[in-house]
Amino acid sequence: MIDIILITLLTIGLYRLVKALERSFPILLFQPLILTPILIILTLSLLDISVEQYEQGAKLLTHMLGPATIAFAIPVYKHFDTVKKYLGLILVSTFIGSFVAIFSTFLLGVIFRLEDHLVVSLLPRSITTPLAIEVSTEIGAVPALTVIFVIITGVLGGLFAPKIFRLLQIETSMARGLALGMAAHAVGTNRALTYGEEAATYSTLAMIFAGIITTSLGLTLLPWLYSLIS
């Protein structure tokens, strides 16, 4: 119990430190999803704490991933009438986005001749972490690698989306929200909040539907792609 409390406080403390740095110096290095894991690794090395000990101690935080993801449903509830109006468009958009994300990742992996386990671990990178881990396990990939790719995808999507929106003059809440939720999942949804609650609603829906669709494809399309590179 003491280990759980200490490691939880350590993790939260490092995260809050990085958030403070990010507010003062808004650069890529100080993104919490980048710098916090680096600081945790350095701290574990200095304190001689094994990865297994940290995983056991961080169970409380790990279990909170699910409820944290579900909490994104709150803005969906508040804008339910708008959601019903555009539900068909949202479903079609997220299906196309999910398919393109998987197939383009596969093609690029083959073009650059990445090792098989890297390609397979990359395929579920465009969905939120809890679902990505399950899909990665289901298709025989390496969940730890998938988590890294999910984080990288989310951080880059959240960073570059505003620049792309300005470049392409994308101004509607729906377009911004769906793009962020589809391309950058939870990080994108957090970024969508800066464009307003309606954009966050669409981003949440895109993240949820992309997770469901990719999980379904994980039982059909992904094993077939995996068989092509095996």
Rank of each mutant, 00 (worst) to 15 (best):
V155I: 14
W224I: 15
T189W: 01
P75M: 06
G211D: 01
D48K: 15
I213A: 03
I164A: 12
V83K: 08
L47M: 07
H117E: 10
F149I: 06
M174Q: 08
L14C: 07
I102E: 10
L193M: 12
S104L: 15
D81L: 14
T220P: 06
V76E: 08
H79D: 09
S121R: 05
L61E: 04
W224V: 15
I27S: 12
V83W: 02
G154E: 10
A179D: 01
F72P: 00
R125E: 02
L89V: 09
V110R: 09
I96H: 05
P37K: 14
V51A: 14
L87P: 14
K85T: 15
E138Q: 14
V147K: 02
A210F: 05
I12C: 06
G196M: 05
G177L: 03
Q56K: 15
G140A: 06
G66H: 04
A184N: 04
T82Y: 05
E197Q: 05
Y54F: 13
I229A: 09
G57L: 07
T201L: 03
L145W: 13
S203P: 01
A200C: 07
P67G: 05
S227M: 10
R166C: 11
V51M: 13
G66F: 11
E171H: 11
R113K: 15
I111M: 15
T146N: 08
L91C: 10
L9M: 09
L180M: 12
V100E: 07
P162L: 09
L17F: 15
L65Y: 00
S227K: 13
L193W: 03
Y195K: 01
P223D: 07
T8I: 05
L39W: 11
L87D: 12
N190A: 14
T201Q: 04
T204N: 02
S93Y: 07
Y15L: 15
N190D: 10
A186E: 06
T62W: 01
I5Y: 06
G196N: 01
Y77W: 12
L60F: 06
A183W: 02
Y195T: 04
I49S: 00
L114M: 13
F95T: 11
V150W: 01
Y77K: 11
F99L: 15
L228A: 11
I34H: 04
